[in-house]
Design a protein around this nucleic acid. Sequence first.
RNA 1: GCGCCCGUAGCUCAGCUGGAUAGAGCAUCUGGCUUCGAACCAGAGGGUCGGGGGUUCGAGUCCUCCCGGGCGUGCCA
Length: 557
Amino acid sequence: MLISEFLHNLTTQALEDLLKGEEIDIYEAPDFIIERPKNPNFGDFATSLPLQISKLLSKNPLDIAKNLVELLPDCEEIEKFSVEKPGFINFSISKNWIKHEIKAIISQEKNYGRPPNPRDSKVQVEFVSVNPTGRLHLGHIRGAVIGSTIANLLENQRFQVEKEYYVNDAGNQMEIFGRSVIERIKEINGTDFNILEDHYRGDDIVEIARELAPKYKNHDLKNTKETIFDEIKNNSKDVCIKNIKEDLKLIKIEHDTWFYESSLIASNYFSNTLDNLGNLDLTYEKDGAIWVKTEELGDERDNVLIKSNDNKPTYFATDIAYHRDKFEVRNFDKVIDLWGADHHGHIKRMELILEKLGIDSKKLKVLLNQIVSLKSSSGISKFSKRAGTSIFLKDLVEEIGSDACRFSFISRSPESQMEIDIDIFKKQSSENPVFYVQYAHARVSSILRSSEHFDIDYSDADTNLLVSADEVNLLKKLIEYPELLNRVTKTLNVHELSSYALELAQVIHKFYEKNRVIDEDLTNIEQTKSRLLIIKASKIILSNLLNIMGMDSPENM
RNA sequence: GCGCCCGUAGCUCAGCUGGAUAGAGCAUCUGGCUUCGAACCAGAGGGUCGGGGGUUCGAGUCCUCCCGGGCGUGCCA
């Protein structure tokens, strides 16, 4: 059990006992948390419960704190409980408990901080899902990195995770994409071509055309027939998806499932869903289009499902069928979607419709990340695929590396607005904090390599010998790891992982600076053993953490 | 106009269901390698937490108004 949970249980029990004496029902008391005080003088954990209930009990919070502490049982996990003004209870954890945890890190290695058994919960994480109309660029990396880290974390925490990419291949943009490629093929093959205003015009389109051009060398593409157009469009799509997969691999992302929007149409699951909405009396026809009555469900207005001009479904319409499929056909217990903030208006109506379809919308968690914009001396500009003004992922990774790239995006909260000055961004990447973390890993690895010459068995080392401030800080930081994973699994705030990684690296570096690990004269073998133990534990936690964040744990740098 | 989000050090950002002295990296300045890795460490300067009001024992965090910015408000996706 996590120590914070343990303390919460303990305190809750004491609170119940206290309230019995006061003849107040426990349910009237507020929820409280066990937190970690910033100031080390206030112990390892703390709660402000006495302050929160002082009004309820009409008593001085300091007195309540004293009463509660008296009701707390002695236990070997806790060294002491103390009361601080104006009414906090502080907990200091015992050396024994620390020792126990450090041994657990060593013995469990990769499994430390994980639940002992797989969870009976199927979770889908859907992320990236960029339209297959070109290469991935800077604007796509944020959701990709956050999504993959969430998936890694949930896998680590023993959920049954499926990583999915939704391929939006049935909409209008595919037609424009197809035509954009054809014009470039014509250009490459030396025939007349015409890039229209609404065509995609990036280098990635030219790249696809170059790959397909030889095949159509002898075709007259001037009056493109429907069949040949569809063929080129589909070929272009395939090349494009191949490129996207390559790009994702560069930042250590591999999806389990590629789900095609077009498959929903082909399998009639889309029309089936449409019928379903009709049967629920949620659709109507107006101006030649089919609408869904989202306004009466609580949305701002009704939405079109089938367009009047071409009788094709809107993005929203197929997305309803897609999400229905996730829950009704594939039975996910939880679905986490990572969307750009430009889709936020979409969330409410999706949830409303899901509820009407008999699906608990709480099973769907949409995580928004704010759109990344480019800042330069000429002002702020949005990425535009169509205009071809993007910075491609592959170029960025080639320049700054995957780990620095991932770290830059993981370490910012998804809600923060990122205005990237690409020159500053690249410059900062050369001194990216990820290297600080990885350097700590390389350093401890190096010490462990050196220790091998001495053939020291430190498995029975005594952590009680670690008493200096740097040693104790490192021990305490290490055993914070399970608390961290537990918390982030709930909040999905993966930037806490990178914050912790930096904090851990920092205490490791500080420890290293003042504490010689290997005593080569072997005069103080017990101390050497205990320090090797903490170094080994540090390496394990760093490596586990870097792995979850999708980054390397280098032995050398 | 309305809805959602954001505004914290010169820059990029943390600040964990409100908590005890607001933090880190970069940049600037000072010091530290004959011993396990100096991609490191020690120290200094730098803040009216966009502004006003409010709730609270306690507000960067919650409420409200204002200022500034992003996104949405399509028979685009």
